[in-house]
């Protein structure tokens, strides 16, 4: 093969394969059949031409892709405006929406819980107020009735000629009833206030134990 002169850039070319000549074997030495050698060279040449063509076409394709990747189309790298990018953006958009739906559902649940608690609390307070008001009213009217009865009995007794002592007793009873009504009312007021305080304390108690659990200082 010493006769083969390397082509440009030191590479073997199809032309060189085609035009290669081998000196005949010296007399007395065995040589190869020239026809077979030529046939094989023709095959090699064909193969190399094919590979070179393939390489050229692949190179072109690679260049085109490089171009699309590098050069702006509408002011943006082409791969970014590509369908793939848009699809990827859409995937992220959907992922974000899904995440937010989960967060939203949890928030909604919290909201409903809190609203129910608030309503229940308002309802309890309203009921407590109403029943307290009713009790006050009943106490008031009973007291008024008792006072009126006592007062009605007193003049009747006087008219019937009751003794001054009996009249004194009756007036004592009226005064007692008045006082009793007063005490009753005070008790009720205290009871009602205690009830309202309790409701507030419940509200505060809800804070613990979670509220007392301090978070750890960041490491």
């Amino acid at each position: 093969m010493s006769v083969v002169i390397p082509g440009p850039e030191g590479r073997l070319t199809p032309e060189q394969i085609r035009s290669v000549t081998f000196p005949p074997a010296r007399f007395g030495r065995r040589g190869l059949d020239e026809v077979h050698v030529r046939a094989f060279c023709a095959q090699v040449e064909e193969e190399i031409v094919y590979l070179l063509n393939e390489r050229a076409s692949l190179y072109q394709q690679a260049e085109q892709l490089r171009q699309r990747f590098r050069d702006p189309v509408d002011g943006e790298p082409a791969y970014m405006s590509s369908i793939a990018h848009l699809q990827a953006v859409q995937v992220l958009v959907n992922a974000q929406k899904t995440a937010e739906r989960f967060v939203g559902e949890a928030q909604q649940y919290c909201r409903e819980l809190a609203e129910n608690a608030r309503q229940r609390r308002d309802q309890l307070l309203a009921e407590a107020r109403l029943s307290a008001a009713k009790m006050m009213e009943r106490a008031d009217s009973e007291a008024r009735l008792a006072v009126a009865e006592a007062a009605a009995r007193a003049p009747a007794a006087t008219a019937a000629g009751t003794s001054g002592r009996e009249q004194e007793n009756l007036q004592g009873e009226i005064a007692y009833l008045r006082m009793y009504s007063e005490v009753y009312r005070t008790h009720l007021r205290t009871y009602l206030e205690a009830l309202l305080r309790n409701v507030d304390e419940w509200a505060r108690a809800e804070q613990s134990p979670a509220g007392l659990e301090h978070d750890q200082p960041p490491a």
């Binding site: 928030q107 909604q108 649940y109 919290c110 909201r111 809190a114 609203e115 608030r118 809800e206 804070q207 979670a210 509220g211 007392l212 659990e213 301090h214 978070d215 200082p217 960041p218």
Partner: peptide, 19 residues
Amino acid sequence: IDGGMVSPVLARGLGVGSR
């Protein structure tokens, strides 16, 4: 705020000493 992200934490989830 019912269902809020931050206000329930501040109002009820944290206490003295929280950061």
